[in-house]
Design a protein around this nucleic acid. Sequence first.
DNA 1: AGGATAGCCTGCGGGC
DNA 2: TGCCCGCAGGCTATCC
Length: 296
Amino acid sequence: MPELPEVESVRRSLEPHLLGATIRGVWTLRRDIITGPPLGFDLLYDGVIASIERRGKNLAIRTSDGRAICVHLGMSGQLYWVPGPGASVHGLPREDHVHLVWRIEPAGAAHDDPRIGRMVFRDPRRFGGVWTFRNGRDIEEKHWAGLGPDALAITTEHLINACATTKRAIKAVLLDQSILAGVGNIYADEAFFLAKVNPARRADKLTHEEITRLAEQIPRVLSAAIDAGGSTLRDFVNGNGDAGSYATAHAVYGRGGQPCLVCGRALSSAVLGQRTTVWCPSCQPRSPGRARRSSS
DNA sequence: AGGATAGCCTGCGGGC
DNA sequence: TGCCCGCAGGCTATCC
């Protein structure tokens, strides 16, 4: 469930705790969520954190000596800060499904400095994971090489080109991280509604006007969701344990059968691109340019 | 080769 | 109350 806005909320909330601080301890409670060398060294032990970056739904944490890790939250992953000194899972608010813990101290901290804390990776469903890189450049050059541009930086031209060469439904195209990185099921449906585009339409049959509207609405809805701290449906929290409020703004996601907020007609729901998809049959007609009745 | 599909995994809600 | 089933979903592997 964490999509671009949720991952960005995590990034922003962790950044002040991490930058310039040193990793003084690493506890691996579940090794099989790690891809790559799994030693403490590979998980940035003794490194000074230089940056925490995001591309699509991925996070990269880099140390000043060139090491780096990539964190992906999958759908139930959490990366959060627990203030205060402590080791491993001892004293954590939730100890189930915790897979990795880092002890982090800011520069020059005394042993009881309140800025000391732990960063915790927790992932009940284990669709997420951590990738280690002794050479941090391998993240862009290898691990992220197959990702499309970040969805916040989408251009109309890029989307037009991507749509021209595929017969897939536009919904499947937006979910394809090699075309655009960061959009998942929630924000895809929201962007389709705002752009008045039917998600089942074949990508190569879309008009330039429709693609232009999508290219405008995708970053718009993502930015609005970031400003709200993301969407919390069940258990998403940012790095400080705070829920996001954007779920209250969802116009279509999770609202199948309920009235369209614009026209009042019942929203349709169907599986498309392997994902439950919700849209308004009146506001997002199958034929562009003219709204008409259609069977749900 | 592009595109569709199965599988990974746990928690939760609905139905009985 | 308790059990079983279906569903949720990002991504990879595999099949067609």
